[in-house]
Simulated scan of single mutants.
Amino acid sequence: MDFLSGFAIVVILLVIFALVVVFMGVTVVPQGSQFTVERFGRYTRSLAPGLGLILPFVDRIGARLNMMEQVLDIPTQEVITRDNAMVEVDGVLFYQVLDAAKAAYEVRDLERAVQNLAQTNLRTVLGSMDLDNALSNRDDINVRLLHVIDQASTPWGIKVTRVEIKDITPPVDLVEAMARQMKAEREKRAVVLEAEGFRQAEILKAEGEKKSAILEAEGRREAAYRDAEARERLAQAEAKATLDVSEAIAKGDMQSINYFVAQKYVEAMKEIGSARNSKVVLMPMEASALIGSLGGIGSIAKEVFGNNNTGGSSGTRSTGSVPSSE
């Protein structure tokens, strides 16, 4: 019985030992991670997510690496730009482990190494730029930092996917100077725009006056042309009437010349009689004799003078005077 009880104890111990060995040889790797396996201190392989087996007492788990994309803050630091402006800069970096063995054995303290690499290159990139360029060209800074840091960290088995500058903070006095500069620039633009508007208004005003003067000159030219045309037609009519009278006289018709002279005489009398300031009309004896000798012209003259006399006290009087012979 003692022998059986001792054998049972040994079996139980062996079972327990076997369970412990099996437990030590089974490793569960979570999703998004990889474990490195070391045999007697030397790297042999990497365990993918899931159930992994190793040889107990021979193999052991070396490094447990996160294979997901990770975020690393770049601490705030002071940087001197090319134009000797002191600014405070911070940022953020995104990276992902692609090779677990390199990330575990090619560099010690991967996060600290990447952080220091980002800080030094940030100082280098900003130090080669003016302050204005640094403030306005963040995309260019991000691209340059990404290229440099990714190339430098490739031997570590990681991939830098993105680098972003969060804040670039100039000194307070420099910010105030920039604000004054911006204000002066805006005032300059306002003055320039106002002057440009005034110049444009003057140009438009001058063009309007020019067009108005052209139209006015064209109007005067047209009016003068029409007046000249009217005078020309009147002269043609006068010439035609004179020609007709001349032809009638040449044929021996004295009534035509009498009618022509009487018509001109009556028109002149009408103009004299219609004047507002005409009170008395003095006519020579030759004119009265001429009127009497022209047949029907006398009655026309009497009708003209009679019409003017109907106007009340302002009627005209006809008196004949004998011219004195010298």
Score class of each variant (00 low, 15 high):
A134K: 09
V172A: 09
A206P: 04
E209G: 02
M182S: 15
Q151S: 14
D139E: 07
E196Y: 00
G157D: 08
T169E: 13
G157H: 13
A213H: 08
D139R: 01
T161M: 05
H147C: 01
L126N: 01
G157Y: 10
E196T: 07
A213D: 05
E187T: 09
A223M: 09
S128P: 01
A179W: 01
A179I: 10
N137C: 10
T154H: 13
S128Q: 05
I165V: 13
M182I: 06
D227H: 06
A201D: 14
I149R: 11
E196D: 08
T161L: 02
A224M: 13
I149Y: 13
N133P: 02
L146V: 02
L174M: 15
S212G: 12
A134T: 15
S153A: 12
A224Y: 06
E194I: 00
V192W: 07
E176G: 00
A224G: 02
L204N: 14
D227M: 01
G219H: 05
I158M: 04
S136T: 15
I168T: 04
E218Y: 12
E194N: 01
N142F: 09
I203H: 12
M178E: 05
N137H: 14
M129V: 00
A195G: 06
E209R: 07
L174N: 09
A190M: 11
V160A: 10
E187D: 15
A177M: 05
V175H: 10
D173A: 07
Q200D: 02
S136H: 11
E216F: 01
G157I: 05
T169D: 12
V175G: 11
V172G: 05
I165W: 03
M178A: 01
V172K: 13
I158E: 01
N137F: 10
H147S: 13
D227A: 08
E185L: 03
R189D: 03
G127T: 10
L135G: 08
R226S: 00
V148Y: 06
V191T: 08
E185W: 10
V172D: 11
A228T: 15
N142G: 08
E207G: 04
K205Q: 15
K183T: 11
N142C: 11
A217N: 10
R226P: 00
P155F: 06
R199I: 04
P170F: 03
V163L: 09
G197N: 07
G208H: 05
R162D: 14
E202F: 04
V125F: 07
D173F: 04
M129S: 00
R226W: 06
R162V: 13
A223Q: 09
K183E: 11
S212F: 10
L204H: 09
T124M: 12
A134I: 14
A184G: 07
D132Y: 00
D173W: 03
K166H: 01
R162M: 13
F198D: 04
A190N: 12
R186E: 13
Q200C: 00
R186I: 12
I203D: 12
K211M: 09
D139P: 00
K183Y: 12
K210Y: 15
V191P: 06
R180Q: 03
E209V: 03
D167A: 07
